[in-house]
């Protein structure tokens, strides 16, 4: 073999160029530069991800509670996302500092090595989620789901509840056709019979029952505790502990205000969400208990979720729930 000559040199240049290009791309993707340790609580902005109808966040934003707490020099942004997995993408690219999503997407994100801590509940819904079925599907209860087509948003509370239904009825996920559909898609698909069933919350349940084409086959009671949890990027939490504690105080204040002014809060939230369906918005509130808390039950809840996700194969390694929860911010806010 000749290690000299124009042809060899050309080929060597090609190989080296390819390697250099890849190395440059890899370094450009790297986001692991360690910043120098800054002073605490110097952030001038807080970006909080939320999904739909999160009463205390919307109310605090619209009523100016954030401004009253933090002043004009500090900005609180509350971008809206379609669901937890959509929020997770923004979190992974560090576009949000705090967020609110279900326990399952939180566990999925944490299993993907995104450094977050769960700092509180946002709400729990003892009886606000349902298995809704097309009346022609032949489904009377979760036991009839085998072989059926179910539309859900993958990776959300609804997905987990479906898995819980299947687990209780000893049906494997592979025995059900799971279609990835967002809420709007699921609503129209189950109404038209394109799917046999879906899992949704109020006010979608009431709207679907009103069509006369959809029936309720089960609620979440006895199957799963549906929650949304407040989490934060560990980096932001550790660098801005006071800001986070004050944020929790604002949310707690908003919770109390909403409880005392439900009708006005419903109008604020409906208006913010761009809907005229006040009754549906009220139904959402009535089926969700908003609270700020981070006790042992939160750790136990997440232990169960981690074990469940592992058993379903959606995560490949278990991790400790105790490492995921940080109740210090709730305590610092004086809310425990």
């Amino acid at each position: 073999m000749k290690f000299h000559g124009k042809t060899f040199v050309k080929k060597l240049i090609v190989v080296l160029a390819a390697g250099s290009v890849f190395a440059a791309m890899a370094l450009a993707c790297s986001q692991t530069e360690k910043p120098q340790a800054p002073a605490l609580n110097t952030a001038t902005k807080l970006v909080v991800g939320q999904n739909q109808n999160y009463f205390p966040i919307i109310t605090a934003h619209v009523k100016g509670f954030f401004k009253e707490e933090f002043g004009d020099r500090f900005t609180v942004e509350v971008p809206k996302f379609a669901n937890g997995p959509a929020q997770a993408e923004a979190l992974t690219s560090k576009q949000i500092d705090l967020g609110n999503m279900g326990d399952m997407p939180i566990v999925q994100v944490r299993a993907n090595n995104v450094d977050i801590k769960v700092i509180s509940y946002l709400w729990e819904s003892p009886d606000g989620y349902y298995l809704l079925v097309n009346k022609n599907s032949g489904i009377k209860s979760p036991a009839d789901l085998r072989g059926k087509k179910v539309g859900i948003a993958i990776g959300t509370n609804m997905h987990k509840l479906l898995f819980k239904y299947l687990g209780v009825e000893k049906i494997k996920a592979s025995e059900v056709e799971i279609v990835n559909l967002d809420t709007a898609g699921s609503v129209s698909a189950v109404t038209e019979g394109l799917i046999d069933a879906t899992v949704l919350a109020e006010p979608m349940r009431s709207r679907l029952l009103a069509t006369g084409k959809v029936a309720e086959a089960a609620s979440a009671q006895g199957y799963d505790k549906i929650v949304t949890l407040l989490y934060g990027r560990t980096e932001y939490l550790q660098q801005n502990p006071d800001i986070v504690a004050r944020y929790l105080k604002v949310i707690d204040r908003a919770n109390r205000w909403v409880a005392e002014n439900v009708d006005e809060a419903v109008k604020i939230v409906a208006d913010y969400m761009g809907t005229t369906d006040l009754e549906g918005t009220r139904q959402y509130y009535d089926t969700h208990v908003f609270k700020i808390a981070a006790g042992k039950d939160l750790v136990d809840l997440l232990k169960g979720t981690i074990a469940f996700c592992y058993s379903q194969g959606t995560i490949t390694e278990e991790f400790k729930a105790e490492d995921l929860v940080d109740s210090s911010y709730v305590k610092a806010a004086g809310l425990e």
Partner: peptide, 28 residues
């Protein structure tokens, strides 16, 4: 060697850089 070597080299470099912590494993 070039046909297969370039992709193999890319994969090896990628593994090396990733294992050394220079890549965000949540993304890559």
């Amino acid at each position: 060697a070039l046909l297969l070597g370039v992709p193999v080299m890319i994969v090896v470099l990628w593994q090396f850089i990733g294992a050394a912590g220079y890549l965000n494993s949540s993304i890559v």
